[in-house]
Design a protein around this nucleic acid. Structure first.
Lengths: 341, 341
DNA sequence: CTGAAAGCGCTTACAG
DNA sequence: CTGAAAGCGCTTACAG
């Protein structure tokens, strides 16, 4: 049992002090050299880095968080893990954040009222270095919490051009309008809007649809089919069956999410209804499988990975005390026209 | 600017010491009373809790982690976020862990060689209170890391009845065998096994299929269709087209994951091949939409939420220093026979 | 059952 | 450019 002189502490863990001893400098100099903070003589930096590497030094995040009052992790709040949309978002953000040395803590609200606020109250004591939240519709208390914490925060998925917040996303309303214009351009007149979940982004898309329908003089409340249940293929199938039976004159349905539209296409198949000859179907998000449907689904491709990356990068800038080029990044969207319309 | 006597610290944060002062006890007593550790006089506990509530005291996780050498979070390592299987797993585990006051940190390996080890090297310095990893096939270095860290660890998805590890899952091989027996029972003879990703659990299922086929005297290497690409509907469609064109005599295909099988069903629809009359299709996992397919998909329902919850509960026991009733929990699986077979 | 002391491993704020 | 001191807010280990 010989004691390795390079690892003097019996506790096992190599600390800053160990590195300092080996490098022949003070602990604070090691701290500064390793973080690249303030000016440290280049030769000392080299000596410190070599010593740290030799000892296999890994900084203790808990000690760092306690001393600096800011952790090395970012908290990300999303509504759902069961929607590929948000999974893509966090997966992309994760990549950027991790490369920069930040951990990511995921909070899921399940679209529950007050859950975002509750999660924040649990998260904030952990001193996250940054925050990414979904959408712009935080309640009063949540906004106050964020503000008071002083933790940099980026809003993902939607954009707020004027407000004093940082956001990355695209105009949900404009996307809803674009799909509606496409269907109108194909000669469809009685275009139903069918949605589930009814989150703020859904409502924005509905607004886009409604404005275009009104402009075309075709809007009617009976074309709106809203269901607050979670989105799913089964629900889409059920909504499709209901719409075609109650309103046989409807000649197109714009579903608010691809899973609904996929379910509708499968229901049409079962019912022997020809798409798009008898009725056009459109979706939203371009989820997995939409290109494989029979017929392939017309939809709006939403660049959620790009949103995740861009939001993470913006947050990185804010966490480093910098100012992002723009406080609001519009990544746009893409109409994907396939055979279902 | 009057100073609130209940919040003496200018820094804003309410600390243990503040609570101790108000309750008229020492800080360590507050610590013990709040954690329910060791015996503290009931009346003191009440006084402390009241003071803590009045001051709105929230323990600082960083300070606690530094002092106790153990964090208040659990690290969970999964292969992919884009597979609903793992999302369900962590979502369920999250619920149990959060209710017990633990945060959850998610690491994604993307099935990359060595990535699990790398993630662990990043995570362990954060002193997680516990670990949940996917499967049982960790490499040597990874197992050594876990062992040396002393952090309690539960393996999810597969089971290890004999080994000295803690596991929650079901027998992947037995599930593969059960589906194969079902297809054989329906009179199918040339049952192909089609798989993507080829992770250890896929290989186990293949083993189950192969053993049953051999027992029936029907095994042939030409029935194995393995593709290391990620699983997707598009890949399932492509594999289906290839199999029926190269081996027209195949009368059933057992796909290793539902997304492949869903893609195959849609491809059959496009090609005008009748399922199950001309060929039977079976999947695995019972993912969203499988019951909506045309025809609905026969599959194996895997209780991943139950696995997540059970693994989290077992870990909770271990983290509290207890010994779980059983080191290996088999949650089983369920054959779901629908019209596609 | 309760507490005074020491310490976890860093960084901040102040000097020089 | 470098460092000695103090402190972040808890818990451990030792007494009594």
């Amino acid at each position: 049992m010989s004691v390795n002189p390079l690892r003097p502490r019996a506790s096992g863990r190599v600390t800053l002090a160990d590195v300092a001893r080996v490098a022949g400098v003070s602990p604070i100099t090691v701290s500064r050299a390793l973080r690249g903070e303030r000016a440290v003589a280049p030769e000392l930096v080299a000596k410190v880095k070599e010593a740290a590497a030799r000892l296999g030094y890994v900084p203790d995040p808990a000690a760092r968080a306690l001393a600096s009052r800011s952790g090395t992790h970012v908290a990300v709040l999303i509504p759902l893990l069961s929607n590929a949309l948000f999974v893509d978002l966090i997966d992309a953000a994760q990549g950027v954040l991790r490369a920069a040395g930040f951990q990511m803590l995921i909070g899921v609200t399940n679209y529950r009222e007050g859950e975002e606020e509750q999660l924040l109250r649990e998260q904030l004591p952990h001193r996250p270095a940054g925050l990414i939240v979904t959408g712009l519709q935080q309640n009063r208390a949540t906004r106050a919490l964020i503000e008071a914490s002083g933790v940099p925060c980026v809003h993902a998925m939607d954009i707020a051009p004027d407000k004093g917040v940082h956001s990355v996303g695209f105009s949900q309303q404009e996307a809803g309008a674009a799909m509606t214009r496409h269907l109108l351009g194909r000669g469809r007149r009685r275009i139903a809007f069918a949605a589930a979940q009814l989150d703020p982004r859904t409502i924005s898309r509905q607004e886009g649809w409604r404005l275009e329908m009104e402009r075309a003089g075709l809007y009617a409340p009976s074309l709106e089919w809203l269901n607050a249940s979670p989105s799913s293929l089964a629900l889409g199938a059920a909504m499709f069956e209901q719409i075609v039976s109650v309103r046989p004159a409807v000649d197109a349905i714009f579903f608010n999410n691809d899973d609904l539209a996929q379910g509708a296409l499968l229901a049409a198949l079962r019912m022997g209804i020809e798409v798009p000859r008898q009725i056009a179907i459109a979706g939203f998000n371009d989820l997995t499988g939409s290109d494989q449907m029979v017929p392939p689904l017309t939809t709006v491709r939403t660049p959620r990975r790009e949103i995740g990356e861009s939001a993470a990068r913006m947050l990185l800038t804010l966490m480093r005390g910098g100012l992002p080029e723009r406080a609001c990044v519009d990544v746009g969207f893409e109409l994907v026209v396939r055979a279902s319309s």
